[in-house]
Design a protein around this nucleic acid. Structure first.
Lengths: 220, 220, 220, 220
DNA sequence: AATGAATGAGCCTTCATTCAT
DNA sequence: GATGAATGAAGGCTCATTCAT
């Protein structure tokens, strides 16, 4: 009962708090963020945090869950068919998820913070967001590499691919500082996804024939 | 004069403080870390921090500078020769730098924190560590891709490669949780570097002919 | 009009609140008790306290008045007759009042709290409960001691007797810890009253002759 | 090390804090007392409580221990000899301990609070103060009552005696309100002790002979 | 009459920092 | 150079109370 607040006004306050908290947590991190700043931005009383979320950490956990709740599972039909097409679709899906301008801008930063400094809320991120995509991706990579590839090879390859996506969780300013050409990346998710897919699929091509026979087409 | 502390005892205290601070900052982050815990671990008085470093943030900056100071530039001869070999050497160098067990274990975590939540100390990391390697790598990739490749292509490709390295800065526990097979990675830097180099160099092979021509030109 | 709440439901809520408040105030004391815990135990909304009692202190006052309202005056016929019999009857009456298992268990604790840390509600306890019995007892003791006893002697003697009763207001656990044999005291009010009366009446016997004279005048 | 502060200045601050805290805790009780008021009266910074005692409850515990530390054990020679003399001496000792004007005035109130609303600090009061006197007194009473008295009889008699002493722990204003004649009691500890001893020893006299005289008027 | 939501006041506590020795 | 003591600032949290429904 104390945890179930279904009133419309109540929900609105919760929403304002989570949004403000998302911004502040993203900017300052869990510990450096103050409830004062959060409630000021939300335009509510400081005690509202305690009322709706019990304490700062629960508010943070709610923010993380909110981040994760945005996820959209790749459609099943995207995930069937030739594995290379699946991989391309999955990468596009992940990059779009990271850069989606219709989602709160602080989303990526929060998730990035969790990966850099895990808190108790990490479980939600892992279980809901990271692990499912990871499994999906492992399967696809395994299908591409074929049954003879070792498990470790499959895992490291998957990691190589996902790493290229995760790097876009970082604060954009850092990347832009290194490579000013990447300035408008948040509006180029398709382009980015295409690059990552091209790069990764190229890496996954079968190695060139040592002795190029005239008609050698064996091998996936 | 006030800034020059040359006594042996003084230097020893500084060293103990930086080492303890590195651990605590790595475990808890800049804000959640307390001087109390740091001075306890260092076995020195709490006022020593303010005496030697003026305040907490200067101590943190000193820790970051200390992290960065460990860097070893790739030897010039490694960076000449065929660009593919250079890339392979550079990747090995970076991975070794990240996982090197002879360096304080908290080094990677501190740098990772800076990337996730930049502070004023970020400049040092960028200028001393990231940017030089980035420039080096950009050059190598540019040489591999040839003069016809667009600048954006070069940058994104570089990013794809460096991203595979940066992922190893993350808290090991997260990766192991997803992929238990990676448990002993900190002792496998050569293997990891080889995988990343193989993967990236494979991706950088020229694209195969669309319609396999009768005489397929192989390129290494 | 605002003070007159005559609805049956309203009265029921008041009753539940007073009962729950009695428990919590008894366990924690006035200040440490929270309205949250009280309303939780009562199964009513937190705002009900302010609605029915205006504030926490009024609720506490109501609880104290409720405690006091339980008192039963000793029957007049008990208080006439030989003063020693009256004293015995009065002691039995007081002990029964303190230990009466048919009354809320928190009654004694509340009154004890008032004596230890008087609040504004103390007046009610004093005027309604303590003072009347005290006057009654003073009269009886005065009759026993005879007209030659000084007023101070009468008062101190009364205090000696009432003190033996008041000690049973204390938290039972303390006494049991000191004297485990007293564990079941709340079911032995008659036995306790008899002991106190015996002890006190024995003390009130006239002093024996120093040198037992040949014809010892006993006084009843 | 953190608990051992032996510096003279430090001890002085501790003393000021305990004295101020004793007053405030006595006046308001543990929960209603605020550190603000305590540190204001002590003339120190609010954070000094945390520095010297960690938190409010430890400060309270220190106050209670301080109360208890004042105790003076009855001299062994007082506790030998005829049991009636011992009892008289012990009562005088206890009353003097309670009313001693050379001790902080808040001492009795604190102990009384502990008996009315035990906290974790009660143990100290019981173990150091109450229990030893209780054992002493039990022994004396047992010797007076003789070997044929039941254990319960001994305990209840002891309780009757100690109760007469404990009543003087109560707020003086309450007693004075009931019996204005007791106004100056804190300067009459000898008189009070004599009364309690007289009253109790009278109660402990052997009952008058049933048939002592040739013409026995019975009546209890 | 009753309740869920919201609020303001205030308290305890933490923590970095300063100061005197 | 180093330390124990002390402090000011600020944050999180609790809680009684009020308000609108």
């Amino acid at each position: 009962m104390a945890n179930v607040k279904d009133n419309a006004a109540s929900q609105e306050t919760r929403r304002k708090l989570i949004d403000a908290a998302g911004q502040v947590f993203a900017e300052r991190g869990l510990h450096a963020a103050t409830l004062q700043e959060i409630t000021d931005r939300a335009g509510v009383n400081k005690a509202a945090v305690n009322y709706h979320f019990r304490d700062k950490f629960e508010l943070y956990a709610a923010v993380v869950r909110y981040c994760v709740s945005f996820r959209v599972e790749p459609s099943p039909e995207e995930m069937t068919g030739p594995p290379r097409d699946c991989l391309r679709a999955l990468i596009a899906h992940i990059i779009r998820e990271i850069l989606d301008p219709t989602k709160p801008a602080w989303r990526a930063a929060i998730i990035n913070h969790e990966l850099a400094q895990p808190t108790a809320a990490l479980d939600a991120v892992m279980d809901e967001l990271i692990a499912p995509r990871s499994r999906l991706q492992l399967d696809i990579v395994r299908r591409i590499l074929g049954p003879r590839a070792s498990e470790e090879k499959v895992v490291r390859t998957t990691l190589s691919i996902i790493a290229q996506c995760l790097v876009y969780l970082h604060d954009r300013r850092i990347m832009v500082r290194l490579h000013p050409i990447l300035a408008q990346d948040d509006q180029k998710s398709d382009e980015i996804a295409r690059h990552i897919a091209d790069f990764s699929l190229a890496a996954l091509r079968p190695p060139p024939r040592r002795r190029p026979s005239p008609k050698p087409k064996r091998r996936s």
